[in-house]
Design a binder for these strands. Structure first.
Length: 272
DNA sequence: CGAGTTTGACCAGCGC
DNA sequence: GCGCTGGTCAAACTCG
């Protein structure tokens, strides 16, 4: 998904144009126009998602037919989610394409500082798994496991465990979607939780979508079917739209682009 | 010299 | 009980 809009930062945007999503939008663009454009954007995103989902379908197929991968250790910890009433550490799985600088090390930039405390070669993956703790706050309970995908070595799979008890976002990268809990819950809570992860990198103008790792005992085919439903895709698009609305950099770029478009349409005689 | 990383050892959980 | 596996520890090492 190409989010690169080119160089579009401007002093006007920095000075603060009228808010695009606010109640006092300029009359230059009618509400219907805005709705139409948002709908078009929605369709465009849906199309892009179709392509992504199609690309993932063969992986899901392999997942459904192969013997349960990664069915020990950390995943076993997750396997009980939903079975017991005990609160468990929040577990999120994020897949992201490794940047060139990260290609050698199992580093996945997510805005937090991490300290590596271990590395292990696991049975199902020839690539070593790295273990990280949050280095920002010693008391922060969050842990992260990063391992290169065995299927696509350019993909890094990061598993986050727990919640940060502090605020520290050093970069404009947000890990947004929750890939925790069981597949059953994904299906039941399709309106609030997606069985995949979304990784938005505003700096690189990229969005990476990834399916969550299948948990032991989950029905991979059912999960794949759930992913392909129009409801899921609608929820996914809504999630992305919400995320982009909250992304200051994206909003700034969008505002600037819209301002430029509006300026183009203003007759020269109306420009001082 | 201090902070961060590496890596072998150790421990706990699980299945047989 | 034993072996296998993932997770963690901590001493040694590296780097700025």
């Amino acid at each position: 998904m190409d989010m690169d809009d080119g160089e579009c930062s401007s002093p006007a945007a920095a000075a603060g144009l009228l808010p695009l999503f606010g109640p006092s939008s300029p009359a230059a663009e009618s509400l219907e126009d805005k709705v139409r454009r948002v709908s078009e954007e929605n369709r465009r995103l849906t199309g892009a998602l179709d392509a992504i989902l199609a690309d993932r379908s063969h992986l899901r197929g392999a997942l459904a037919t192969s013997p349960t991968p990664s069915c020990h250790g950390n995943n076993a910890e997750v396997a009980g989610a939903g079975v017991t009433a005990e609160p468990r550490p929040r577990v999120r799985t994020v897949r992201a394409r490794a940047e060139a600088a990260d290609a050698d090390a199992n580093h996945l930039k997510d805005g937090y500082q991490w300290r590596k405390y271990g590395q292990k070669v696991t049975r199902d993956n020839p690539y070593p798994r790295a273990y990280f703790r949050c280095a920002y706050a010693p008391s922060c309970p969050v842990k992260k496991k990063v391992q290169r995908s065995a299927e696509d070595k350019s993909m890094l799979v990061a598993t986050y465990e727990g919640e940060h008890n502090h605020e520290q976002r050093a970069q404009s990268e947000y890990v947004v979607s929750d890939a925790s809990t069981t597949t059953t819950q994904h299906q039941q809570q399709a309106g609030s939780s997606l069985p995949c992860s979304i990784f938005i990198n505003s700096l690189g103008r990229t969005i990476t979508l990834g399916l969550a790792e299948q948990r032991p005992g989950s029905n991979a085919e059912a999960a794949a079917a759930a992913v392909m439903t129009p409801e899921f895709r609608k929820v996914l698009v809504e999630e992305i739209v919400n995320l982009l609305k909250n992304d200051a950099e994206f909003l700034e770029s969008l505002t600037t682009a819209v301002a430029a478009r509006v300026t183009e349409r203003i007759p020269p005689e109306h420009i001082f």
